[in-house]
Structure formats: structure tokens, C-alpha cells
Design a protein around this nucleic acid. Structure first.
Ligand SMILES: [Mn+2]
Ligand SMILES: [Mn+2]
Ligand SMILES: [Zn+2]
Ligand SMILES: [Zn+2]
Lengths: 147, 147
DNA sequence: TTGTAAATGAGAATCATTCGCAAAAAACAA
DNA sequence: TTGTTTTTTGCGAATGATTCTCATTTACAA
């Protein structure tokens, strides 16, 4: 019988995956981070707790955590993905091309539109990618770094 | 004075770009194609009309055509972009993970949501990325290639 | 404990996209 | 036309992100 029992442990066991330090650490870092981390930053942060972890393992790990539904990957205008622990309330992102700031927002109308489409066309939606880019209020005003 | 005058010519001149065979050809291929082409396919199709065109030029060209608003680039679940001549009626895409089919649809509710957000948060939206992936009706039924 | 399958680290490989630079083509003026 | 100037192009090398290979280590069930 198992003395440990966290969402991670549970999910890993349920999916027949092994519980490794690397997997714990990657998820922890993501849960404690208030920002959206890309693989590289995730790698450096994870290193502090699992000094020998490799970048390849970070990629392998985010893949399984994602597939288990514990983390989400977003495409935020950059050429690489960003990760975040799956939040209580789902949301979408706007990324400022000027300062890089990310504004999170929810959009039930979008969720509804997706569901309607799925029903009407008989589709099984597996992933919704919705993100915006542009200039934030501050940058529009000639903000911190001008535009 | 110029005898030629197409949207492309006009746009190129307006933006101070030169009119080259490569630019004509890339746009033509895109306009005549009913599918969303990625850089590589675009390259091979363009080669038939401009045999010495290079892949680098295809990339450079889609960049300017995009910036001129003549074509659009989409992220359809794959790791590379897809291009399409900007359509009369804007639309979004659903890509089937089983058969690759792309279903196009419009979603005024989404457009509205974006506009509301922009106003409320005072954002200047430059690009909206909205695309879905999953399984199409045919594939769900155990379609053409099973799932 | 031990045996076995799964996971990891390190580096090579792959893919998409971008760069650098010399040669070719467009725009312009004469 | 012709020559001059400036942009584009082609080609191959470079880059950045992600995946793969494979020998070694680890998890964990028996
Ligand atoms: Mn977020
Ligand atoms: Mn389309
Ligand atoms: Zn900003
Ligand atoms: Zn399908």
C-alpha cells in the first residue's frame, strides 16, 4: 500500500508510469511558478532541485504530464511552447509584442462556440488553441519601452 | 506609368517592394490551391512555374505577402505553419488528427469576444490564433483509416 | 534482494526557419 | 537603351526547438 498520495502520484500510477524525482520536480516547478515557462527555463529551474536532469527529460516529462492532464502547453506567439500547471479556472492568453506581458482572460463565449461546433459537425475536440497577440494598454500609450 | 495592375502589384508598389516573378508565382499558387499549403509544398508547386526558386525565397516571400495582408498563416496542429490566400470570408480551422482533414468554420461569437476584450482591456489586437484539433465525424465512426 | 521493464543523461540527429553573401534582377536616371 | 543603384534571389551554412539513440541507472513487483 502506498503512503504517498498526491494528484501527481495518483495520475502516474493510474497511467502506469513510474514515479521519479524528475517528474515530481518538473511539476513542482510549474506549480510554483506564476509565469508560463518554456522548456529551457523549466530546465534551469528544475536543475536546482534535480541537478542532473537533462533537457531531453524535461521534454519527455512535460509530454507525459500534459497527456495526464496535469499541465497545459500554450503557443504564445513565440516559436516555442510554454507550460503551466492546469489552472482551476481555464483561461486564454494575450501576449504583448512590445513588452512580452501576458494577459490572461476567460472567454465562455469561445468555449460555447467550440461546443456548438463540435455538436453540429459531430467532432470530438481534443485541443483548443486560442491566443492573441498585439500591444497592451501600457505599450500603446508609449509605455516602458516605447513601441 | 504602369500598365499592370493587380492587387499584388498594387500592394507591392504601395509598400515599396519590387515586383518579381517569385512573388507572383507564390501568390498564384496559393490562390489556386484549395488546400492550406506549408512552405515545403508551396516550394514544390512554385518550382513548376519558377524552376529556380529557392525555399529561402518562399519563406521570404510568404513573409512579405503576409505583412501586406494578402495571405494568412495558420497553425494547424502540425509543427510548421500553413498558408492560404486571405479568403473573402474569414474563418477558423479544425484539423482531424485521424485523417488530416481540415474543416473550416466561422465563429462570429469568437470575433465578438475578441473585440470586447480588446476594448475592455484597451488592447490592440494584431493576431488571433484560434484552431481546433480532434477527430472528425468520419474518423469517429471508425472511418477511412480507422483511429 | 533480484530481475526486468521503464526512465534518464548526453549527445547526435532532425525539422523548420533564418542568415550571409556573392550573383542576378528590378527600378531609376541619363 | 545604357549604366547605376538598390533589392532580391539562390545556395549553403547556421540556428533553435524538439526528438531520438543508446548505454547506464532506477523503479518496483515478485
Ligand atoms: Mn496562463
Ligand atoms: Mn482555410
Ligand atoms: Zn506591452
Ligand atoms: Zn478524420
Amino acid at each position: 500500500m502506498n503512503l504517498e498520495s498526491s494528484p501527481l502520484i495518483t495520475a502516474l500510477q493510474a497511467s502506469g508510469h513510474r514515479i521519479t524525482r524528475q517528474r515530481r520536480v518538473v511539476l513542482e516547478v510549474l506549480e510554483e511558478s506564476r509565469e508560463h515557462l518554456d522548456a529551457e527555463s523549466l530546465y534551469w529551474k528544475a536543475r536546482q532541485r534535480a541537478p542532473r536532469i537533462s533537457l531531453a527529460t524535461v521534454y519527455r516529462t512535460v509530454a507525459v504530464l500534459k497527456q495526464m492532464g496535469l499541465i497545459a502547453e500554450y503557443s504564445l506567439g513565440e516559436e516555442h511552447g510554454h507550460f503551466e500547471a492546469v489552472p482551476e479556472t481555464p483561461h486564454y492568453h494575450f501576449t504583448c509584442l512590445g513588452c512580452g506581458r501576458v494577459v490572461e482572460f476567460d472567454a465562455p463565449q469561445v468555449d460555447r462556440a467550440v461546443q456548438e461546433l463540435a455538436e453540429r459537425e459531430n467532432l470530438e475536440i481534443r485541443a483548443v488553441q486560442f491566443s492573441l497577440t498585439g500591444y497592451c494598454a501600457r505599450c500603446r500609450a508609449g509605455g516602458p519601452d516605447g513601441r
